[in-house]
Amino acid sequence: MRESWRWFGPDDPVSLAEIRQTGATDIVSALHHIPIGEVWPRDQIAAHRALIESGNVAGSQLRWTVVESIPVHDDIKLAVGGHEAYVDAWIESMANLAAEGVKTICYNFMPVIDWTRTDLKYQLPSGAFALRFDQDRFAAFDLFVLARDGAEADYSDAEFARAKSAYDALPSGEIAALTKTIIAGLPGKMTEAYSLEDFRGALARYAGIDHDHLRANLIGFLERVLPAAEKLDVMLAIHPDDPPWDMFGLPRVICTPDDLDKLFTAAPSPCNGMTLCVGTYGSRPDNDLPQMARDYRERIHFAHLRGVTRDPSEQRSFIEASHLDSDIDMVRVIRNLLENEGVTQREIFIRPDHGHLMMGDVSRTSNPGYSAIGRMKGLAEIRGVIRAVSEVG
C-alpha cells in the first residue's frame, strides 16, 4: 500500500516538513485556488508538484500522486445547456495532471453541498475532539433556520419534534456557527460557500432532479471523460456522498453497493473506479465494508481509512472515531485490501482521514479533521495493522 497524506497547499497549517516526519510517501493535493469549472494550467500543476518535491532528501521523498479533487461544476451535474464547456475544461485539467505524472483522481458528484458535519469540535471522554454529524441538529437547521420549502415532508412527526427540541436548545450564536458549518464549506470542499439566500437558490436549481436523472448525468459526464482517461492511463476514483443519503431534498447516487453496481455496469471502463472511504460508507449500517473491499477489488484505486461510531438510537448520527475503534472492522478491511493487491498486482493509495484534534494541536491552528497529531496516530495504527497482517499472511 502507498501511504499518503492530504495536503492543502502552502497555507496548510501542517507543513511538508512535518508530513515527511510521519513516514508518508505520497501527497494527496489539489489546486484549491482555481475557481470551479476553470482549467488547471500545466505550469501551475508543475509548480505545485515542484513545491511538494523541493524538500526531498535521500530516504525521505514525497511525491504528488493523487488529486483530491478536480471539482465537478453543478452545471455538469444538472446537464444544463452549455455544460459541455465545463466537461472539456475538466478533461483538459486531467490531461495536464497526467502530463505531470499525477494519474489518480478522486472526485465526487454531490449536488450543491460537499461533505457535511454539524459539529467540528465535539469533545470525547478522552478530552480530544472529533467531527460529528447529528441528525437532529441537521434537521433543526433544515426545518427552522433554512426553512426549506417542503422540508416537513422529509421528516416523520417524531423526527420533527426532536428537531424542534434541538433547535430550541441552540443559543443564537450557535445557530450562526451551525449555519456556517453546513453551508460555508469544510476543508477540501468542491462546492461554493453560500449565504442562506444563495443556498436556497442553489437548491431550487435541482427541483425536479431525481436519482435516475442525476445518475444519468453522472454517466453522461463519464462517457465524455473516460475515453480521455483511458488514453492518458488516468484512474478515476469517485468518492461516496458524505453522509451517504439524500439531504435537503437532493438526490445522492453514490451511497451503497447497488449505486456502485449501476455505475460500473453503465460505464465499465477499468479507469472508472472508486475511493473506498471506509468512514463514509460505514456511516450506513447496511454497508458491509470488509465485503465491499473484497467485491470491488478491481475498482478500488484509493482508500480513506477512517471509521465512525453511529448513535444506536439514531443511526444517521455519528462521531468520527479512532481509526481502529469504530463500528467498522478495519482490520478485515485492510486484510482484504492487501489481498486485492496480491491479485491485481498494483498498490492502492491509502490515507488516514479526519483524525482527532488532540494534544498540542488543540491550541494550534488546524483545518477541521486535518490536524497533524490525530492523523499521525491514525496512520501509525493503520501501519501497524498492515505490518501485522502482512507478517501473519
Score class of each variant (00 low, 15 high):
Ile209His: 07
Val392Ala: 14
Asp212Gly: 12
Thr344Gly: 08
Trp7Gly: 03
Val102Arg: 05
Gly23Asn: 01
Tyr122Ala: 13
Arg162Thr: 03
Leu196Val: 12
Leu120Ser: 08
Asp88Phe: 05
Val362Ile: 15
His48Cys: 15
Trp90Asp: 00
Ser69Leu: 08
Asp311Cys: 05
Leu97Trp: 05
Asp327Glu: 09
Phe141Ala: 01
Asp361Val: 08
Ala380Lys: 11
Gly82Met: 10
Leu146His: 02
Phe133Asp: 04
Pro312Glu: 03
Ala139Cys: 01
Glu347Cys: 11
Gln135Trp: 12
Gly101Arg: 05
Pro368Asn: 09
Arg299Ser: 04
Gly201Phe: 08
Ile373Phe: 12
Ile175Arg: 15
Gln315Thr: 12
Asn108Arg: 08
Ile113Gln: 14
Ala321Lys: 00
Val343Phe: 13
Arg42Gly: 10
Ala151Gln: 03
His73Met: 07
Ile183Asp: 01
Asp157Ala: 13
Ser156Leu: 06
Gly282Ala: 07
Met1Ala: 07
Ala46Leu: 15
Thr365Phe: 15
Gly101Trp: 10
Trp7Pro: 00
Ala153Trp: 00
Leu214Asn: 04
Asp12Ala: 06
Thr22Gln: 06
Thr191Asp: 11
Ala176Phe: 05
Gly360Tyr: 15
Asp288Pro: 09
Ser69His: 11
Glu38His: 09
Pro41Trp: 10
Asn96Thr: 09
Phe248His: 07
Gly355Gln: 06
Phe221Ser: 07
Phe144Cys: 02
Thr22Arg: 02
Arg20Cys: 00
Val331Ala: 13
His323Met: 14
Ser69Glu: 10
Leu124Glu: 10
Pro240Val: 09
Ile319Ala: 04
His32Gln: 14
Glu159Ile: 00
Asp142Arg: 04
Ala293Trp: 04
Tyr194Lys: 01
Arg364Gln: 13
Phe8Glu: 05
Ala266Ser: 12
Leu324Lys: 04
Ile76Ala: 11
Asp11Ile: 11
Ser60Ile: 08
Gln21Gly: 10
Lys262Trp: 13
Leu338Arg: 10
Ser322Asn: 11
Ala24Phe: 03
Trp90Cys: 05
Ala202Lys: 02
Asp325Cys: 11
Asp286Gln: 07
Gly201Ser: 08
Ser313Asp: 11
Leu260Pro: 10
Ala89Glu: 03
Gly37Trp: 03
Phe138Gln: 00
Asp327Arg: 00
Lys164Val: 06
Ala58His: 14
Gly101Ile: 08
Phe133Ala: 06
Leu78Pro: 10
Ala79Trp: 12
Arg299Trp: 08
Ala266Lys: 01
Glu347Gln: 15
Thr22Ile: 00
Glu341Asp: 07
Ser390His: 09
Arg205Thr: 01
Gly59Thr: 11
Gly384Tyr: 08
Met274Ser: 06
Leu124Gly: 02
Trp115Glu: 03
Ala58Ile: 14
Ala204His: 10
Val102Ile: 15
Trp64Gly: 04
Ala153Asn: 12
Glu100Gln: 13
Val102Leu: 05
Leu214Ala: 07
Arg375Cys: 04
Ala321Arg: 02
Gly201Tyr: 01
Lys103Pro: 10
Thr116Ser: 12
Arg42Val: 13
His301Glu: 10
Gly384Asp: 06
Val234Thr: 03
Gly360Glu: 15
Thr309His: 10
Lys189Pro: 02
Arg294His: 14
Met110Thr: 14
Glu197Ser: 13
Ser317Tyr: 00
Ala151Trp: 06
Ala95Met: 15
Lys377Asn: 12
Pro13Cys: 01
Ala193Tyr: 08
Val308Ser: 05
Arg132Ser: 00
Val385His: 02
Pro243Leu: 05
Val66Lys: 07
Arg42Gln: 13
Lys103Gly: 05
Lys231Tyr: 04
Arg215Ser: 10
